[in-house]
């Protein structure tokens, strides 16, 4: 199967799952900023999603996207280390034009994943999980997302932790978005600066939307 056996096939899977996760992040960040504008509105969205069948299906598809992205990330990274060989250079200097994030995608991914586990415990476990199983896992009603958000971010430590997480994700995305387009073949000499610009703009907007929430609670 060429999606597993060939390098470009594997990269194709990586880029498709990555792009899918980016689309999810755009949706997620748009949904989140509602909590600043109107906590009631935010709770209405939480209520609407909750444990309804479409939200559960969405969660399963999303989880599959994550799992495939991570499994392929491991596979590609291991293969790349093997291709590099055991004997490393004694002196190696980075090229100025090479983005730092492009050489550290796996490390950035692992950081993102680590915080994601925490994020699941902070919200998903107390909201969708509680609603699905009927077990009371948090302090508030499972659909009262706004209460969970303001409770968590009443601690400045959590605000800082989430901001650090988002910075790592920003680095992953600034390379990831253009790299995914490049992998899909959507690039040429004219488009290279544009594609990189699009990548920077998309990642920055998404991350700023996410970040506005801990920042808002930090200063209010």
């Amino acid at each position: 199967m060429w999606l597993i056996d060939s390098s470009i096939g594997r990269k194709f899977i990586m880029s498709i799952t990555g792009a899918f996760l980016v689309l999810f992040l755009i949706f997620h960040s748009l949904m989140n900023i509602v909590v600043i504008i109107s906590p009631e509105g935010y709770n209405a969205i939480c209520e609407f999603l909750g444990a309804n069948w479409y939200a559960v299906v969405g969660t399963i598809v999303l989880a599959a996207g994550f799992v495939i992205h991570i499994v392929y990330a491991l596979y590609l990274t291991l293969q790349n280390m093997r291709a590099r060989g055991k004997q490393r250079y004694d002196v190696s200097e980075n090229q100025k034009s090479v983005e730092w994030s492009s050489q550290n995608m796996f490390v950035l991914g692992v950081i993102v994943l680590g915080f994601l586990v925490l994020h699941f415990y902070n919200f998903w476990y107390k909201m969708q999980f509680a609603e699905l199983t009927g077990i009371q896992t948090g302090l508030f009603d499972p659909a009262n997302g706004a209460a969970y958000v303001s409770d968590l971010f009443s601690s400045w430590i959590y605000c800082v932790v989430y901001i650090v997480w988002l910075v790592a994700l920003w680095f992953h995305l600034t390379h990831g978005v253009w790299s995914a387009l490049h992998t899909l073949g959507w690039n040429n000499k004219t488009w290279m600066p544009r594609v990189k610009m699009i990548s920077n703009i998309v990642s920055t907007i998404v991350i700023l939307m996410f970040m506005s929430i801990p920042v808002y609670y930090l200063f209010s």
Binding site: S7, Q95, S97, T183
Partner: peptide, 13 residues
């Protein structure tokens, strides 16, 4: 046994 490209651009540089 060559690796998978991650578009770092070190090659071009």
């Amino acid at each position: 046994g060559f690796g998978n490209c991650t578009n770092t651009g070190a090659c071009e540089a």
